[in-house]
């Protein structure tokens, strides 16, 4: 599939899960395809990074369910901050671990998972999607009931995949991409390189085959598809590019320039071609 064919499967108002973690292994070529489509009114579910920032900056997000939003090396995601400070999105914030349980509950098709995470904090005060539950056992402990995240479509980016949709991660952490895939009605996977099934074990052990094709509805080969987020061992984060992206939040003209240069492009191939024209890191503006 192509990025645009994936996005053609999405609709306004849908709940979209986005894999990765902060500014790490995000399906950015798919996010950019959403940006060049007319899709809007989305409910985005994410351990957020620039995926969330970009979608917020372009006004595509109605509701945001998140464990955090950060660029890692830049702790505060500036476009997300603007969205919060102008009140442009319905924010549903979860403790990072509690967010994992929302994915797990959806995966296991139960209405919630109980946890202590959130007790006594203002997570419960400000997240109207959250309720508590009392243990039916002798302890009668009141616990947070993290609701299942009902996701229409998840988007994840893997290091390798085969055409059938078996996904492989080769970096230090899968994050929660397998749960995003299992929690959603449908999942589309982009990958750095499409390989033959018999080659899946040539670069990583069997333990790296963590998303079975049972949960994948389409695969896009997108080399550099996580740029500018990191995608080890294929590449690290493009910190210079990320700094440039972050600076656009302070200056509408810089944002318009960034948008023209990097978002208003017809395809991921065009994005890659423009990236190749960039000067070496030390010489970047």
């Amino acid at each position: 599939m192509t990025e645009d064919e994936v996005v053609a499967e999405l609709g306004d108002g849908m709940t979209i899960g986005i894999g990765g973690w902060g500014s790490r292994r995000k399906p950015m070529s798919l996010v950019r395809a959403i940006l060049r489509s007319g899709l809007s009114d989305l409910h985005v579910v994410s351990y957020g990074g620039p995926d969330v920032g970009l979608l917020c900056a372009e006004g595509r997000v109605r509701k945001l369910t998140y464990g955090f939003v950060s660029l890692d090396s830049i702790p505060l995601e500036p476009h997300f901050r603007i969205a919060r400070q102008t009140g442009s999105v319905e924010a549903r914030e979860y403790d990072e671990g509690a967010f994992y349980l929302g994915l797990l509950a959806a995966t296991h098709r139960v209405p919630f998972y109980p946890t202590r995470a959130g007790l006594g904090s203002d997570m419960l005060t400000y997240n109207p999607d959250l309720k508590t539950v009392t243990s039916p056992y002798a302890d009668r402990t009141e616990l947070v009931a993290v609701p299942a995240f009902d996701i229409d479509v998840s988007l994840v980016h893997m290091n390798r995949a085969d055409a059938a949709g078996n996904g492989q991660f080769l970096g230090p952490d899968l994050y929660f991409d397998d749960l995003f895939a299992m929690a959603a009605e449908r999942t589309f996977m982009s990958c750095e390189r499409l390989v033959a099934t018999e080659d899946l074990l040539s670069e990583g052990s069997v333990h790296t085959l963590r998303i079975p094709r049972l949960h994948t509805d389409g695969v896009v080969e997108a080399p550099g598809g996580a740029h500018f987020t990191e995608c080890p061992p294929d590449y690290g984060r493009d910190e210079a590019f990320q700094r440039e992206y972050a600076a656009t939040a302070r200056d509408p003209e810089a944002w318009a320039r960034f948008r023209a240069d990097w978002l208003d492009l017809p395809s991921h191939e065009d994005y890659r071609a423009r990236l190749a024209e960039r000067t070496e890191p030390g010489e970047r503006r």
Partner: peptide, 25 residues
Amino acid sequence: AAIGDYRRPKAQLLGLRGAPGNVIN
């Protein structure tokens, strides 16, 4: 997490991150 009224903060900071789950556990 945030300074001001959380619902529309004066300054969005780190957010809750893992603090609620860490501290209670």
